[in-house]
Amino acid sequence: MTVFTNTIVGGRGGAFSRAMQNPHLIFGFVIIGCIALAAVVLPGLLGLDSLAVDPLNRLKPPSVAHPLGTDNFGRDLAARILAGASTSLSLATAVTLLAASLGVAVGIVASFSRLLDHVIMRICDGLMAIPALLLALALTATFGPNFSNLVIALVIVFVPGIARLVRARALALRSETFVEAAIAVGASNLHIMVRHIFPNVLSVLAVQVTFIFAETIVIEAALSFLGAGVPPPAPSWGNILYDGKAAITKAPYMVLFASTAIVITVTGLTMIGDGLRDLVDPRMGARLQPGMARRLFGLIRPRTSEGEQQ
């Protein structure tokens, strides 16, 4: 019955067609796509206002008017969870893009200079010795809690890991024949960095970036929950959990709905990350410990030598 599974898929195959055969990847993208679409379209379509206060209808359980109930200020919970999704997703996008570009630049430059490499890597070691959540908490507390400071703090937290990973990959690439050939032809360092090293780092980076995206969402929720993230009354999943914790005996559904949103998003991202990893490096798919497990554990564990795949 499974005769066709052994058919050899020819040659390279388009990255797209290989991606289409990866159920994890597709399913993950569908989940995240649906959440993003809902966060963008639904509030306008249904006329939901995440900040409209209705003191007469505080902590009302789910009903027709409020499908997910109302919170302790009488705000519509569905509207707040959707708005929280766009807060989380836009924060994660900003952090991921900034951290990735900075990390790639630092990592590639470090791989080209021995002296710089030593200095940069020791700084990375030091930053990674402080647990991620603790560092993020300390930095946001110092900068003051608002959206852009949150982005800065999380970028500082994530850049060292990316830089280390990119540097390790770049160092390995430098001894490859095609790079040696480019050097022999007399290509400038800048040319080699941009045209030869950079494109070959991207595959490893893609996997890492997905995990950082998920970590950002979890850390944001944790920080907001502790009062050091997105300042209220702005909607964010962590803020909803914070309000929900105060009302946990009267309105447990607040915590349940917000938790569900977080868990679904993280699961979707995990699937994308694992799927991407299979796509980039099929051998690693056979590993017992999936990447996400280590990444989530790494949130509270200092990241001394993690993230380097050599």
Binding site: A221, A222, F225, K245, I248, P252, V255, S259, V263, L296
Partner: peptide, 22 residues
Amino acid sequence: TLIGLTFPSFVLSLILVIVFSV
């Protein structure tokens, strides 16, 4: 193990509070 790893601990603790305390 997958469930244990995808639930952030603060989410899990709130759910446990709802189940066991509320």
